[in-house]
Design a protein around this nucleic acid. Structure first.
Lengths: 232, 232
DNA sequence: ATATTTTTTGACTATATGGTCAAGTATTGT
DNA sequence: ACAATACTTGACCATATAGTCAAAAAATAT
């Protein structure tokens, strides 16, 4: 699967190779230190951006969470905005990779089922990224607008056409594909973005493995039946 | 329907009456000016908080949007946090009022159908409030936690019990009520919170009346069929 | 060994912003 | 008319924070 915008680390090593005269092997010790620290900072930033918002996130707090002095954060990421960009790009990449789980070669039941599973897994494994994404969209997608108009639109159109084909073939009930996609996105991401509310209504306790399993099951059941498919 | 936390305006006029000796009629000119300005400020604040987040919202910008000098905003609302509180309380009130549309005296089909309609209407009429709510929850509900644990939990439990009764009576398919509620909340609110993304995928144009109608229809169709009911 | 590059970090600065204040204006009560 | 109260607003201040910098330490190349 193609990585669209992240992996600047690898790219910078590539640039380094390109513009350096030496044909020697990549000094991976340095590269590794760079990418290692960047990874730590990005992870901390994702958490802080998710919990405090872009404006509320201070580089000092990000540094603290990363366990580094603030100046060090600015050494690896020139500005807060650049750091934020990278976080947003990363989650978009992750999601686009997962989007391949919507495999139209399979029938509608399997394709939708696997896609929902994948999105639920991501909601559980990447809750901070999901929240950062939600905030980015809510604020008008100042950073990610190009990707919405490009890759996301392309992907949606493509999957929409497949859904329409399934409908024409009588493999599922007629439904506007766009609304079906929105319903899947919203429902699955809700378990990340509104995790706090769900936890509160769950007696203040986070979901157990069994509860996550039940959640996936419930979501799949309603959606599949909702479009005329028979869940297992 | 009871108002839970807003209407400080009315309450302050009540206090005024209480502690003033005069038995004269309420000087509604002043009160009206107060509540009028507060309303303007609250509306501006809702928009700015939604678009910029709590930390990103400046009192100066709120004042500009409201068309007032900043000091005037602080005259009516001591602190930014107090203003934010009021905005959050207002949307919670609005939603709790709408929650009565989930009328369990009706059958499951009518109750769910009307509730979804109501939530979709609110997503359209109160998109800023919805976004502020989403951000509040994503940041751990620092302001509204009490209400989650109180009224929202109570309401959810109550409606959950009714849903379970319907299931026991064979009026709808067995489904965990909590997940059904989450699915309804997430799907409907998505049209507000991710309105920008939806608009982008809609060719950059906001939904027309017809598209909103279609959206409501699609959502209701999938959810009702998803729980074994037959949408009209 | 020594030069060179990369990384670390405390100290510093410029700026933005929440909130205050006092002086003035409008409104209302008597 | 006049006193009292409510509202308006420009100017101001204290603080927080993104970003800089220079000096040193560490790693790497030759």
């Amino acid at each position: 699967m193609v990585k669209y915008c992240s992996d600047l680390t690898d790219r910078s090593s590539f640039i380094w190779k390109k513009y350096t005269v030496s044909p020697e092997p990549i000094p991976f010790r340095k590269i590794s230190k760079r990418s290692q620290n960047q990874k730590i900072i990005l992870k901390a930033a994702e958490k802080v951006f998710a919990e405090a918002g872009f404006a509320g996130a201070t580089t000092q707090l990000i540094a603290d969470v990363a366990g580094l002095p603030k100046a060090n954060v600015h050494y690896y990421f020139k500005t807060k905005e650049e750091l934020y960009r990278r976080v947003v790009y990363n989650i978009f990449d992750t999601w686009m990779e997962a989007a391949s789980a919507f495999d139209t070669a399979l029938g509608p039941k399997e394709a939708l089922s696997r896609y929902i599973d994948m999105k639920m897994d991501l909601a559980r494994s990447h809750p901070y990224g999901s929240k950062v994404w939600a905030a980015e969209i809510m604020h008008g997608a100042p950073i990610i607008q190009d990707y919405l108009e490009g890759q996301l639109l392309d992907w949606s159109k493509d999957r929409g056409q497949h859904i329409e084909r399934w409908i024409k073939n009588g493999e599922m009930d007629p439904i506007d594909p766009a609304h079906l996609l929105y319903l899947i996105w919203s429902t699955t991401q809700h378990y990340a973005d509104f995790g706090h509310q769900i936890e509160t209504l769950n007696g203040g306790r986070p979901f157990s493995d069994a509860q996550w399993k039940a959640a996936k099951r419930s979501v799949k059941t309603i959606i599949l039946k909702g479009v005329g498919l028979t869940p297992d």
